[in-house]
Design a protein around this nucleic acid. Structure first.
Lengths: 326, 326
DNA sequence: CGAATTTACGGGGTCCGTAAGTATG
DNA sequence: CATACTTACGGACCCCGTAAATTCG
C-alpha cells in the first residue's frame, strides 16, 4: 500500500469514479492510475469499485468503508506537513479564505489588514463564491476557512463558530415616501418594490421569514448577490433596498437615505467554518482571533475535538460568550 | 512522504531512538532507515529528532507532534487492511489475546471453545503475561484484546469493558481449624499464614484493601501468579489459600476444602481492553459477544467513538447493564 | 462509433544492501 | 576503541508515460 495509491482512490471518488478525470487532476497518466488501483485492490484482496465492463459504476461496500479511512489518512498526512511548516517557517504560508461578496467587501478588510501586518509573509488567498460553494471548498480542504452567514451547516465535517451579529438597513432615494415615516413596519415595506439579496446569500432567508411570520408577501423586484448592485438600482429608483447595515457607508452613500431596520428583522450571525481534524497552523488560529476576538485558541482547540455536530453546537452555545455586533 | 518512512519513524521511537534496533525490527538495513529519515526530515523542513553527534537524543517539539499523527496514520493504514480482510475473507484471520494465567486457565476456555467452533479458520493467539505487559501489548497493537482484572486503566488508548464479576474462595486442608469456624471473618483469617496471588495479579489489590480497611495485617507467606501453584502449597500445609473462586474445581480439588469468601472481600471485575481507533474485525466483535454476552456490538461501536477516557467510563457505567457473575 | 479503461513495453528514477568512513562516549 | 550513524556506490525493481488493444454505451 502506498500513499500515492490512496491519493488515487480519493481522487477517483472525488471525480465521480472517473479515472481519466482523476488523472488530469493529479497531473499524471490515466493508465498509471488504472494500474495502481488494480495493484491496491489485489493487495487488499477486495475490489473497491464495482465495474461494468471497463467503467467504474460505484463503490463496493468494502470500498465505502475503506474510502472513509483513506480520507482520514490523507488528511493526517497533510496535517503532518502543516505541523512541520509551522515549526520550520511559522510566519510563512498560505491562508485560503472562501467567502461571499458581503464578507469580502465589508467585514473582512479590517481583519485582513491587521493580519497582513502581523504576518506579512503569509500569502492570502481569497475565493469568492456562493455559500454552498464556500462550504464545499472548506469541507474538501480547498480553503482553510469558510466565512458566510448562510448554509454552512450542511457539512458535518465543518466546525462552525459565530463571529459577529449584524442587522439590516433600508436604503431609500431622498424623498421616498418611506423616508418620512418614523419607524416604518414590515407592512409599510411590503407596499413598495424591494431590492435585496439573492436567495441563499447574506441572510436572505431570515429576511423572508420575517415577512412570512406576519403573513406578508414582499414585492421583491430585483435580487443581487452584493450590496453594490443593490445600491445601483436603488439609485435608479427601482425600489427600496434592504442590505446588511455594514454595507452602508455614510460618506460614499451620502446620496441615499439609510434607515436602521434592526427592529424589523431578527439579527443574523456570520460564522467561520473549518474542517474538523484539520490541523490549524498557528497563523490560522491567529486569523480567527483577529477576525473574531472573542474566539480564543483554547476554545477552538476544544471544539475541534468534538466529533458529533450536535454536541459541537451545544458546546459552542455554552462556551462562546457574547458574540459582538459588527 | 512515503508510508515506509512513517513506519521507520514509528519504529525508531518505539525502540528508544535507536536506528539500528528499528532496522532489525523491520528486517531492513540500518543505512536505509538513516537515509530515509533524512529525506523525510528534508522534505518536511524540520528535524524530527535532536542529535548529539551521530546519536539521536530525543524528539524535537515538532517531532513530538508529528509522531502522534504518524501513529494515527499507521493505525489507519492497518485498519484499511483489516476492513479489506473482513470483506475478502471474513472468517479467516488471527485473533490475538493477551491475558493472565487466571483468565487463560479458568475464564477463557468456554469462550474460546465456542468461538473456535464458530470460526474454525481464525487462528487464535494467546499471550500470557502480567497485567502491565498485557496492557502494553494491546495498547501497541501486538494483541487485539487484553483480558485481565488489574491495571488495565493506565493507557488512555485502551477502551475497557467489564466482562464479569467474581468472588474469592478460601482453600484449606481438611482438618484446618478454620474449616470448623462458620462464616470466618477477616480477623480469623489474619491469624493464619496465607497464600495468594502476587501483587498486581488477579485482584490482589482488592484483597489487600479489604484487610487494610479493618486495620489488619495479613500474614502472606507465599505469593504466586496462578492458583495452581497456590493450591500446591496449600496441600503442603504452608497456609490458607485465597484464590478466585472460579479456580476451585469440586472434582479436581476434592482433597481440599473451599469456603466461599464473597462476604469478606469486595467482588472483582475482569475487563476486556482494546485499542481505541483500531478497527475491530467482525470475528473480534463476535469474540467479545461470546466471552461477555451483555456487551453488544452497538455498544462497542459507540464506546469506541468516545475520545476522553473519563467520558468513556461514564458511558460504560451508564449503558452497560448488569455485568454477570462468572 | 466514441469514450473510457486495460494491456503492453521501454526508459528513468528510486530505493535497497554492502562496504567504507567518521564521530561519540 | 567500540559502537552507532553517515556517506558512497552498484544493481534491482518499480513506476511512469506512450502507444495499441478492448469493451461498453
Amino acid at each position: 500500500m502506498k500513499l500515492r495509491q490512496l491519493h488515487f482512490v480519493h481522487e477517483i471518488v472525488k471525480h465521480d469514479l472517473s479515472i481519466t478525470a482523476a488523472a488530469e487532476a493529479l497531473f499524471t497518466s490515466q493508465p498509471g492510475i488504472s494500474k495502481q488501483l488494480r495493484l491496491l485492490e489485489d493487495e487488499l484482496g477486495v475490489p473497491l469499485f464495482e465495474r461494468s465492463g471497463k467503467h467504474l459504476t460505484r463503490l463496493t461496500p468494502a470500498g465505502e468503508q475503506i474510502v472513509q479511512i483513506v480520507d482520514r489518512v490523507l488528511l493526517d498526512v497533510d496535517n503532518i506537513s502543516r505541523v512541520a511548516k509551522d515549526f520550520s517557517d511559522g510566519n510563512r504560508g498560505v491562508l485560503s479564505l472562501a467567502t461571499t461578496h458581503t464578507q469580502a467587501r465589508y467585514a473582512l478588510p479590517p481583519a485582513v489588514t491587521a493580519f497582513k501586518k502581523q504576518y506579512p509573509d503569509v500569502t492570502l488567498n481569497l475565493h469568492q463564491g456562493s455559500p454552498p460553494q464556500i462550504a464545499r471548498m472548506a469541507a474538501e480542504g480547498e480553503a482553510d476557512f469558510a466565512i458566510a452567514t448562510e448554509a454552512l451547516h450542511h457539512f458535518d465535517e465543518l466546525v462552525m463558530l459565530p463571529c459577529y451579529h449584524w442587522n439590516r438597513a433600508l436604503l431609500l432615494r431622498p424623498g421616498h415616501p418611506l423616508a418620512s415615516v418614523s419607524n416604518p413596519g414590515l407592512k409599510d415595506l411590503a407596499r413598495y418594490p424591494l431590492i435585496t439579496y439573492t436567495f441563499g446569500f447574506t441572510g436572505r432567508s431570515q429576511l423572508d421569514q420575517a415577512f412570512k411570520a406576519q403573513g406578508l408577501q414582499p414585492n421583491v423586484v430585483l435580487t443581487a448577490v452584493d450590496a453594490d448592485v443593490i445600491k445601483t438600482y436603488v439609485r435608479l429608483g427601482l425600489g427600496v433596498g434592504i442590505i446588511a447595515n455594514m454595507a452602508y457607508s455614510a460618506e460614499e452613500d451620502d446620496d441615499l437615505v439609510a434607515i436602521d431596520a434592526g427592529h424589523l428583522f431578527s439579527r443574523s450571525t456570520t460564522h467561520i467554518g473549518f474542517r474538523r481534524n484539520q490541523f490549524l497552523r498557528d497563523f490560522m488560529v491567529r486569523f480567527i482571533e483577529t477576525f473574531a476576538p472573542h474566539l480564543k485558541r483554547d476554545l477552538i482547540e476544544q471544539v475541534i475535538e468534538i466529533r458529533e455536530p450536535a454536541e459541537r453546537r451545544a458546546f459552542v452555545a455554552e462556551h462562546v460568550g457574547e458574540v459582538p455586533a459588527l
